[in-house]
Design a protein around this nucleic acid. Structure first.
Length: 230
DNA sequence: CGGCGGGCAATG
DNA sequence: CATTGCCCGCCG
């Protein structure tokens, strides 16, 4: 079943004044309001972080063919680290994931990173969620790969938003109680053609690759406004 | 089948 | 702490 819709209720306009380049037209999204939201800019992506979940709400990227060609020569870093810019009470620690049975799942994938600095930063736990291991290496990996393949054939910039959905059962891992999302999504927006779609998968070993949903349906389900109204 | 991309854990 | 080897799923 579809998670609880959160399209109604108070909203907040995000800013991302230090890294507008990750958003279409330089305009970051309107999101459902929440406690402990913090904006983090990295060299190749931006994170809206939820300090209660200790995980991202979404991670935004701007990609193109040139960047992904460059990324092919950047070695995977594999050095996970807690995000020091976040207050200790709001951030995940390595020990929260260790032995949890869940993998540290990238939102902005390591394989997208086009510089060594971006690669290293992608291993911040601010870019991670507790993810089912089979989902991460299976159906979700295919979503990431399909998105890279699309970008490689696109004429120009493609904006990608990857994030979390919680169904209210509030599963957590570790002493820090890092929230386990029930679903993950990835919105893809081709700024050249104006087309947009969304992948939507349960964070579970049974997830299988399927056709993406329309961006309109994604907005209705989540209340997240990533794209300019059309 | 090998290679790649998503990870993990044991070893010094 | 870094290095190394390993597992899994998917694709060509």
């Amino acid at each position: 079943m579809a998670p609880l819709a959160v399209a109604s209720g108070p909203r907040v306009q995000t800013r991302f004044a230090q890294c507008p380049q990750f958003f279409p037209g330089g305009n970051p999204p309107v999101v459902p309001s929440s406690q402990m939201l913090r904006e983090l800019c990295f060299s190749a992506f931006a994170v809206l972080h939820n300090g209660k979940a200790k995980a991202p709400v979404f991670v935004a990227q701007r990609l193109n063919r040139k960047m992904l060609l460059q990324a092919q020569s950047v070695a995977r870093a594999d050095k996970f680290y807690p995000e020091a810019r976040l207050p200790a009470a709001e951030r995940a620690e390595l020990d929260d994931y260790r032995g949890s049975g869940y993998s540290r799942g990238h939102m902005a994938p390591a394989a997208d990173m086009h510089t060594p600095e971006a690669m290293a930063q992608s291993f911040s736990l601010a870019n991670m969620v507790p993810q089912d291991q089979r989902h991460n290496g299976g159906a979700w990996s295919k979503v990431e790969d399909d998105t890279r393949k699309y970008v490689m054939r696109a004429a120009g910039d493609v904006f990608v938003f990857t994030g979390t959905v919680y169904d209210g059962r509030s599963m957590t891992i570790g002493a820090g109680r890092v929230a386990v999302p029930s679903h993950l999504y990835k919105v893809v927006y081709d700024a050249t053609t104006g087309r947009a779609w969304a992948h939507w998968q349960a964070n579970s070993p049974q997830s299988r690759a399927g056709p993406p949903m329309s961006y309109e349906e994604f907005e209705m389900r989540t209340g997240l406004g990533f794209l300019p109204l059309r």
